[in-house]
């Protein structure tokens, strides 16, 4: 862990530069909060922190630049930094997080689990289907019913269904 790598990691230079630009942007934003109004102003602390970020990144950048550039960048980038599995999985997560709000928790989570388990284990759709159903039910019972966390409802009128089930049981008694 401790020893410094000899060559730059693929993409490291770009990552450091992005962070540096980001820090400078945050520094500028922090200045915008209250300028140099005083030691107790709301912006004083954020300004100090973003300045520290920027300075430490300059130090990091200097070390990164001193090391030789990596060989075969594109190929190693694809293998070490962004393998296909990670990219596809991230894509699934992105779609999931966007669908969560309008589709609702249950359908979007179910589809996410189904798709990602099927993808990661390379097929075996039935097993994925069973596992997804089981885990959704467990999560729903623990969070929604026991801990009363109102998960995003989306398209399914959950409260109406729960009320209907309750009245169904009430009528049965």
């Amino acid at each position: 862990m401790q020893e410094q790598p000899t060559a730059r990691r693929p993409g490291e230079l770009v990552f450091t530069l992005i962070l540096l630009v980001g820090s400078l942007f945050l520094l500028w934003q922090a200045y915008g909060i209250s300028g140099f109004a005083g030691l107790s102003s709301a912006g004083a602390f954020p300004m100090a922190m973003s300045a520290i970020m920027a300075v430490s990144l300059v130090v990091i950048l200097a070390t990164v630049l001193r090391r030789p550039a990596p060989a075969a960048v594109l190929e190693r980038l694809r293998k070490d930094i962004l393998p296909a599995t990670v990219v596809v999985f991230c894509g699934l997560i992105l779609v999931y997080s966007l669908a969560l709000d309008w589709l609702g928790f249950i359908p979007s989570s179910f589809l996410f689990l189904l798709a990602s388990i099927t993808f990661l284990q390379g097929g075996r759709f039935k097993r994925a289907l069973g596992l997804s159903l089981l885990s959704i039910i467990c999560v729903y019972v623990v969070f929604r019913l026991v801990f009363q966390v109102v998960l995003p409802e989306g398209l399914i009128p959950e409260r109406a269904i729960i009320a209907w089930i309750q009245s169904f049981f009430a009528a049965g008694n």
């Binding site: 999931y96 989570s109 990602s116 990661l120 284990q121 999560v139 995003p152």
Partner: peptide, 26 residues
């Protein structure tokens, strides 16, 4: 892992949501 990781993700999403009932946290 093919089963474990999607489940970790699901748990993380529900967990992040429940803190403040907010999709933004997710």
């Amino acid at each position: 892992k093919a089963v474990l990781f999607p489940l970790i993700l699901l748990l993380s999403v529900v967990g992040a949501y429940s803190i403040n009932n907010s999709v933004a946290d997710v």
